[in-house]
Amino acid sequence: MPRIPTRLIVEAYQHDALLPLLLRECRTLDSAKHELRWLREHALRVKSEATPHFSRTLLRTMCVARSKGIPLQYILGDQPFGDLDIKCTRGVLIPRQETETITYHAAKLILDKLSKDGGGGIDKNRPLRIIDLCTGTGCIPLLLHSLLSPHFPKITITGIDISTVAIGLARENRERNVRLGLLSKRALTDVNFQHGNVLEYADHTSALNKVFQDVRVPPSPHLDLGCDVIISNPPYISPQDYRNGTTSRSVRMFEPKLALVPPEESSTPLLGERNFQIEDLFYYHIAAIIAKCMVRLTVLECGSRLQAMRVATLCRNILQKRSETSGATISVWSVTGVDTHPYAVLIQMSLNNKGPCQGQQR
């Protein structure tokens, strides 16, 4: 990481003596000013009337912590996600703005494709069924419920994660946002979080039965495991990018590697697959789930356009092995239009009374 110019440090000090501390992570004066404002507002909120100088002392303590690379969200304790307030704690991945954008896009697709009566829409006599794999803080299921529950009289959303710490925090975020009035009380029964790991099985059939055994969704004549939508922001950083400086110091030091990098030992049986990359491991398993469940809509966050194109090809190849899913429409959607920023792979299948319709892939 390049050194901060002395001129910039002096300029920062002239504005506020705490700004040089924040420059170590922020790298620009404008960014440091924004973070100082957020930290100051937080310090004032927790200020004790009995100790009027406590807010400044706390502010300096937080700035020192930030200078050591501790993510701002862990210091402040929360992160906005849509209209929600998501609690953040160490051991669980911090929600990103790109994930928020993808969640909004997923909600739009669901409303466009699944909210209509007939023509592929959801039968109003049963719930819309959504599963979020690698749920983390629970931000995706909770925001989806906020966006979709006004349009669906019945909805069931289940978040699944291997981390018991993440599951506990997700449940806490559900209660927290209901308590704050940011989620309807329906969320307490509509949104559930369960422990599961899609990577621990070699046989996909037994894997699905195990992973989804606690998912409280009713069966469907079309969907083997009763799922309309799968959405996921899985670990997608390669071990090389995690180690070589591409991943920021703050992320490497303080956010859980489990939520960032797929386990290398789990990739061993797949290394002989054509063009297989270790960072695509989760998508390989999720594609098998999609084929098994006959999922109507799947939304997968990827780290870049290059990865999204690989994942789209991987999913297409796996789905083509099942004649029932050969009509799946697969596309790549950009969050920002920048190739190195997150993208989403979208997989859509149309179902009628006789099974899935045939469509054209792209």
Rank of each mutant, 00 (worst) to 15 (best):
I4Q: 11
I4Y: 14
I9E: 13
A12P: 02
L22A: 10
C26S: 12
E35L: 04
E35W: 05
L39R: 04
R40I: 00
H42A: 13
L44T: 04
V46R: 15
L58A: 07
L58D: 07
T61I: 11
R66S: 12
G69Q: 11
G69P: 08
P71V: 14
L76F: 03
F81D: 00
G82H: 00
L84E: 00
D85Q: 01
T89D: 11
T89K: 15
P95D: 05
R96D: 04
D123V: 02
D132F: 02
T135R: 07
I140T: 02
L143G: 00
L147G: 03
P150H: 01
P153Q: 04
T164A: 08
A166W: 03
A166Y: 03
I167E: 05
A170I: 10
A170L: 13
R171E: 09
R171Q: 13
N173E: 07
N177F: 01
T189S: 14
D190P: 14
V191E: 01
G196I: 07
L199N: 12
K210T: 13
D228Y: 01
N233D: 09
P235V: 13
G245W: 09
V251N: 08
E255P: 03
K257F: 04
V261W: 09
P262L: 11
E264T: 10
P269R: 05
R274K: 14
F276G: 04
D280V: 12
Y283S: 14
I289F: 15
K292E: 14
S304V: 09
V311K: 02
I318F: 11
Q320H: 13
A328Y: 04
I330Y: 08
L346M: 14
I347Q: 02
M349A: 03
S350K: 11
L351Y: 07
K354F: 06
